[in-house]
Amino acid sequence: METLYSTEPHYIRCVKPNNLLKPAIFENANIIQQLRCGGVLEAIRISCAGYPTRRTFYEFLHRFGVLAPEILEGNHDDKVACQMILDKMGLKGYQIGKTKVFLRAGQMAELDARRAEVLGNAARTIQRQFRTYIARKEFIARRKAVIMLQSHWLGMLACKVHEQLRREADALKIQKNFKRHIARESYLY
């Protein structure tokens, strides 16, 4: 059954699970014999030996178009686009039918691996751009905070310097007036 499920059969074959025709009882030898007599196992063997993977042009382009986006942008027929993608990937031994692409064993896994690599690179690029955006946003916010803190600090420092200069000026005025007063008193007396 695993072999049957792993393929894409175009017909349904009914088998009797046991000679008693009772549910939940499986006689493996009986089932294998029915599959052999019906030619199902031979069909599966031939299918696996030939082109086990079959995809319509639309399915193929929808899944593997990311491998060659420039081909999808052009006005190519689906059949021609599939051919161009397979040639670009360097696959040999595939067949192009009237409505489907036929791939040998392992070729679909190779295409899936390349697709995963392309999608992984795209995901890393998106993540890198997003992380750059977040880091820049945080940097700008911190820079604004530092500038604001510096401006407040410089304002407070300027106020202290101004206060010190004002006190010194006031002290000089008091000293000047006091000295003038003493000089006048000594002159008058």
Results as ranks from 00 to 15, higher is better:
Lys22Cys: 13
Lys22Pro: 01
Pro23Phe: 11
Ala24Gly: 05
Ile25Pro: 01
Phe26Trp: 12
Asn28Lys: 13
Ala29Ser: 15
Ala29Leu: 06
Asn30Leu: 15
Asn30Ser: 07
Asn30Trp: 14
Ile32Asn: 06
Gln34Asp: 11
Gln34Tyr: 14
Arg36Trp: 10
Arg36Glu: 14
Arg36Gln: 15
Gly38Asp: 15
Gly38Lys: 07
Gly39Phe: 10
Val40Ile: 13
Val40Arg: 02
Leu41Ser: 15
Leu41Val: 15
Leu41Gly: 05
Ile46Leu: 12
Ile46Thr: 12
Ile46Ser: 14
Ala49Asp: 10
Ala49Thr: 08
Gly50Tyr: 05
Tyr51Gln: 07
Pro52Lys: 00
Pro52Val: 01
Arg54Ile: 13
Arg55Trp: 03
Thr56Cys: 03
Phe57Asp: 10
Tyr58Leu: 03
Tyr58Asn: 08
Glu59Cys: 00
Glu59Tyr: 09
Phe60Cys: 03
Leu61Phe: 03
His62Lys: 05
His62Gly: 00
His62Phe: 09
His62Met: 03
Arg63Phe: 03
Gly65His: 09
Leu67Cys: 03
Leu67Asn: 04
Leu67Ser: 07
Pro69Ser: 10
Glu70Leu: 01
Leu72Pro: 00
Glu73Lys: 11
Glu73Arg: 04
Asn75Asp: 09
Asn75Gly: 01
Asn75Cys: 05
His76Gly: 00
His76Thr: 01
Asp77Arg: 02
Asp77Gln: 06
Asp78Gly: 00
Asp78Phe: 09
Met84Leu: 05
Leu86Ile: 04
Lys88Asp: 02
Met89Arg: 09
